[in-house]
């Protein structure tokens, strides 16, 4: 059951890809990456619960901690001040 749910979570992660490729705006692509990051965290939690590996919690935590850095950097770099 958990394996199946992890698979669905992975599919939800991959479903952000078409939006990332198509866009249309740059912000669309960045939030697609953000959504894929959330899906990855969920998939990692589920894989950890399915296999009983607690090391995966650390991987998920690292992803969660760094999830917003590129989003913040994108917005901060967005309008060039020249």
């Amino acid at each position: 059951m958990l394996d199946f749910l992890a698979f669905v979570a992975l599919l939800a992660t991959l479903a952000a890809l078409p939006r990332l490729v198509v866009g249309p705006s740059a912000a669309d692509r960045i939030i697609a990456a953000q959504l894929a990051g959330t899906g990855t965290v969920a998939t990692l939690i589920l894989l950890g619960a399915a296999t009983g590996t607690s090391a995966l919690h650390d991987v998920a935590l690292v992803f969660a901690a760094l999830a917003a850095v590129s989003g913040l950097a994108f917005v901060a770099l967005r309008s060039p001040r020249r």
Partner: peptide, 10 residues
Amino acid sequence: RTASVAAFMV
């Protein structure tokens, strides 16, 4: 470039 970087992140 943004698309490439976002794809690389994923």
